[in-house]
Write a protein that binds this DNA or RNA. Structure first.
Lengths: 222, 222
DNA sequence: CCATTAAGTTGATACTATCGACAAATCCGG
DNA sequence: CCGGATTTGTCGATAGTATCAACTTAATGG
């Protein structure tokens, strides 16, 4: 039993260490296992779906033992929550960057933000899938996750409020407006990610059409 | 090991059968295990997420042995695929019903269909979660699933085409139009389902606002 | 230079998916 | 009506996973 695991090379009576590394390249202390676990987990999800992420496999890929990850995360769910939360943070950063870098605050900024949102999802399918769909996440009400998601949402609300003040979009509850927009971009992103869309369809065109329709719906005036 | 499974009451040298039922209420032949598996799986997802669905647990709940489900589905993924496909079929039926029952073909019909879509998702979270998010589904390209999903999409395209002909909405590629709408309703449904939306927000209002914004975006004229 | 602690490791338990061989019910052609 | 063929279940066994506990190293502060 457990034949695969026993392939572990580290018969760790190997001294000869230097800065945590042994001469044969193996290391007892990984260096920054926690960070490595986060990126590796996301990579594995991208490759083979959430199912393919197992604590043992991830340890194997990083060259540590099967239970080393437990030193950094209470359990598998906690690891995945951390990955998801990191995803929300990164997404928020990207949207903020677009907001900051956009020339003027015309309605075109909204379009850019919407498209950036979908782009992020397509570029980081692993993170994105985990951010929504609590499939792999056990405990309800992960405060870390909820906070990160709320921070993203607050940023969206802020953006819509700003545009309402400049008069480019309809005056209405900015929170609802933000949810509607969030839903729309999340929806397309999700359909594209889950390959629900016929390959013959031009994804970029679809994304543009989504933001365009949405903007037509919120634009001020007629 | 396997202490739980061994609790199985059926020490099946119990004869005394009648129409597949034994006198003590147990039955060797379940009757319609296949159908029971489909509904039970969906129920379990509703309760504890996709993770909580295990072939053993589902058998336990239905009072059959751990491997009885394998008589009806090649593996767990096949069972889940069937649940998802059934979901697409049921959703399509409901949308068709709204389309058929709606008085006239005014743009209001579109609103009703959009709201019915979200309602379905909220009423059948188990099915819905499985329909999107391939997390739990292994093989790519499940023809059964793809067909069911395509049938739903075709129905949407048909609806938009009809409304274009009656002149109530913009003339443009109905396929893209359908995808945009699909994305929007799927997005809100998904956010609501995954509890991504603050509890203080009125869900019904949000749904109405989503369809309203969308319709403003596709309406013909100015 | 040693005691402490952080970071890893192996061993063991309890579950799960799934395969294979076997038993019980049903069904169907004679 | 009856016995084989088929379908539906059952149990035993293998391999892989999460996770806990006890033990080992490495790194670090005094």
């Amino acid at each position: 039993m457990d034949s695969v695991d026993n392939v572990n090379i580290a018969d760790y009576p190997s001294t000869n260490h230097l800065l945590g590394m042994t001469l044969d390249g193996s290391a007892y202390h990984h260096g920054d296992l926690r960070a490595a676990l986060l990126t590796e987990a996301a990579a594995m999800i991208d490759e083979g779906g959430t199912l393919s992420v197992t604590m043992r496999a991830i340890g194997r890929r990083l060259g540590v033992s099967r239970s080393a990850p437990y030193r950094h995360f209470a359990d598998k769910s906690a690891l995945l929550v951390a990955v998801a939360a990191a995803g929300f943070d990164r997404l928020r950063d990207r949207l903020e960057a677009v907001g900051a870098g956009a020339p003027g605050a015309g309605i075109d900024q909204l379009r850019q933000i919407g498209e950036e949102y979908v782009r992020f999802a397509l570029e980081n399918p692993g993170h994105y899938r985990l951010m929504y769909g609590k499939e792999a996440i056990t405990r309800r009400d992960q405060p870390e996750l909820r906070e990160a998601a709320n921070a993203l949402f607050d940023e969206l609300v802020r953006i819509f409020r700003t545009h309402q003040q400049s008069g480019s979009i309809k005056q209405q509850d900015p929170q609802v407006q933000a949810y509607v927009a969030w839903g729309a971009v999340h929806g397309v992103a999700s359909l594209l990610l889950e390959e629900q869309i016929l390959t013959a369809v031009d994804a970029d065109g679809l994304i543009r059409q989504t933001t365009a329709t949405l903007l037509d719906g919120v634009r001020a005036g007629r």
